[in-house]
Amino acid sequence: MSLTSNQRRALARQQCRAALAAHIHERLGLLVPPQHVRLQPSAEDGYAWSVLQGKEYLLDKNLGNGTVGRYEDIMKQIGSSFEAVTPQRQQSKPAEHMTTLSDEPESSEASSTSFTEMIQQLEHDKHVLAVELESTRAYSSQLLRKDGEWQEKTCNLEKELHESRSSVNQLETELGRVKEGMIAAMTVLRSCQHSKADSTSLESNDEKP
Rank of each mutant, 00 (worst) to 15 (best):
C192M: 13
C155E: 04
E163I: 07
A138S: 06
T136F: 09
L101A: 15
A130V: 01
L144N: 07
F115C: 00
V131M: 14
H194P: 05
A138I: 06
T113F: 03
L144A: 10
T154N: 14
Q88I: 05
M186E: 06
A84Y: 01
R177K: 14
G176S: 08
Q121T: 00
S114D: 03
R177D: 13
E160W: 06
Q91S: 07
M186S: 09
E160M: 08
M182F: 06
H194F: 02
Y139S: 06
Q170F: 10
T99N: 08
M98F: 01
P94D: 13
E152N: 07
E106P: 00
Q170L: 15
Q90W: 02
A184C: 11
L171C: 15
V188K: 13
H127E: 12
C192E: 12
T154V: 05
T187I: 00
C155N: 08
L157Q: 13
T173K: 14
R89L: 15
E160L: 03
Q170V: 10
G181Q: 15
E180M: 14
Q121A: 11
A184H: 12
Q91Y: 13
D147G: 02
A110M: 02
E96V: 04
P105G: 04
W150L: 05
G148R: 02
T173H: 15
H97W: 02
S114G: 04
K179P: 06
S167W: 11
R177W: 11
S164A: 08
T100L: 13
